[in-house]
Amino acid sequence: MHLIITDTRLARSRSIHLSGVRLVLAGLLLSFLLMLLAAGLYHWVFLKGARDGWPVVGSLVRLVVKDEFEERDRFMRANLDAMARKVGEMQARMVQLESLDERVLGLAGMAPAELPKTPARGGALVAQRSLSMDELQSVLDELGRQADQRVDLMTVLESRLFDQHIRKHMVPTQAPVLGKEAGSAFGWRIDPFTGQSALHTGLDFQADTGTPILAAAGGVVLTQEFHPAYGNMVEIDHGNQLVTRYAHASKTFVQRGDLVRRGQKIAAVGTTGRSTGAHLHFEVLVQGVPQDPQKFLAAGESAAVAQAGGQRPRAAARR
C-alpha cells in the first residue's frame, strides 16, 4: 500500500509505503487501542450507573453482585457443613477416649473422679441447621480445651504407670533359685552347729553346687564380699531401705555398684562360710531388720497366678 500526504500550507507532500507486515501490525495496534477504549468506557459506565442508581445499569450490577454473593455463600456453607461433620466425628472420638481414660485410670490406681468429664448432651432431634462460623469456632475451641486436658491426664497416667512398673520390679518377689522349694524357713530353729535355739533370718534353698542364683528384684549391688558366716555374699539395694542378701555362694558374677535386673544371674549356689551343705541362704531386710522372705515370694506367686488366669505355677503348687 502506498500513501501520499500533501501539506497545502507548506506546499510539500510526503509519501508513506506500507508493506503487508506493517499493515497487519497497524491493524492489530488499532484493534488493541479500540479494545482498551471499550473496556474503559464499559467500566466507567457501570461504575457511574451503580453509584448514581441508573435504572438499567444499577439493576444489572445488583444482579451480578447478588449472583456472586450467592455463589460465595453456597461455597462457604458447603465447607462449613463439611467441617461441622468432621467436628461431630471428633466429638464422638472424644467420648470413646473418655471411656478409655476410665479403664487406664483403673490400671493406674486413680479414682475416676479425677477424670475431666465431657459435658452431657442429648434430647430429641427437632431440626437440623448449619452451624455458623462463630458456633463452629466455639466448638473447636472446646474440643481443643478437652484435648489439652487429655494430654495433661495422659502425662500424669504415664508417670503413675511408670512408677508402678519400677516399684513392681524393685520388690523382691522373684524366686532366687528356680524350681527349688524353701527348706529351712524364717524364724526360730535349732542351730545345726550349736544345737541351741537361734533365729534363722532367711530362707534356705537346697540346690546343687553351681545352680544359678537370680536377683529377686532389680537394684544396685550394695555388697560383694566374703563374710565369715555368710561366705561369698551379695547384697542388692532395691531402694526405700529394702535390701536382699544371697549367701554361701560358690561364685559371684557381679561387683559392688553394678545395676542388676530382676531374674539376672548374680551368683552360683555353694557351701562357703558357715554352712553344712550346698544351698542358698536368702534374706530380705527392711531398714536393716530381717523380714520373712516367704511373704514377698508369696506375693509374687499370687501375681503370677493372676496373670496365668488362676493356674498356680508348678513350683508353687508343691510348697
Rank of each mutant, 00 (worst) to 15 (best):
T211V: 09
L259P: 03
Q206M: 15
V234S: 07
F253G: 10
V220R: 06
F253S: 12
V220N: 10
Q224D: 15
E235Q: 10
G219P: 05
R262D: 00
A249N: 15
A268K: 09
G202K: 09
A247E: 07
A249E: 04
T194I: 10
I213L: 10
G257F: 08
K265E: 13
T201Y: 09
Q224Y: 13
L242W: 01
A229D: 13
A207M: 06
G202A: 08
P212S: 04
G263L: 04
G270L: 10
G257T: 09
F193K: 11
T209K: 10
G273V: 12
M233I: 12
G270I: 14
F205T: 01
V221Y: 07
H238F: 03
Y230A: 10
Y230F: 15
F226A: 00
T201G: 00
T272G: 05
A215H: 01
S250N: 12
Y230V: 07
Q224A: 15
I236W: 03
T223E: 15
A198W: 10
T271R: 15
L214W: 09
T276D: 06
E235M: 11
Y246Q: 08
T223A: 12
A267C: 11
D191P: 02
A198T: 14
K265H: 10
T194A: 01
L242E: 01
G218D: 07
T209D: 00
